[in-house]
C-alpha cells in the first residue's frame, strides 16, 4: 500500500510514477510529483520506481480563471 495525496492506494511491484499517473487517470499536464518529499521531474516518470509504503504527492496546479 502507498499513500497518494494522503489516501491509501494499492501498490504493485515495478510500479513507476508513470504507471501511477495512468492508473489514477491524472491526465492534467501541469502537475508536480513528489515521492517522500523528493521532486520527480517529468523525464523520470517512466523510470522512477515507487516502493511499497511510499508517500506520493501529485499536485495539480490549477486554480481556475
Amino acid at each position: 500500500m502507498i499513500k497518494v495525496n494522503t489516501e491509501d492506494y494499492p501498490w504493485h511491484p515495478g510500479m513507476t510514477v508513470r504507471n501511477l499517473l495512468d492508473e489514477k487517470q491524472f491526465t492534467f499536464r501541469h502537475i508536480i510529483v513528489r515521492v517522500n518529499g523528493e521532486f520527480v521531474s517529468e523525464e523520470d516518470y517512466d523510470k522512477w520506481l515507487i516502493q511499497d509504503g511510499d508517500d506520493v504527492l501529485v499536485l495539480h496546479l490549477m486554480a481556475g480563471g
Partner: peptide, 18 residues
C-alpha cells in the same frame, strides 16, 4: 461565480485542504 475561489483541484484531487 468562480471568480472568488476555484479550489476544486486543491480540495478534491490534491487533498491539500482536508
Amino acid at each position: 461565480q468562480h471568480d472568488e475561489a476555484w479550489l476544486i483541484f486543491m480540495d478534491m484531487v490534491n487533498k491539500q485542504i482536508p
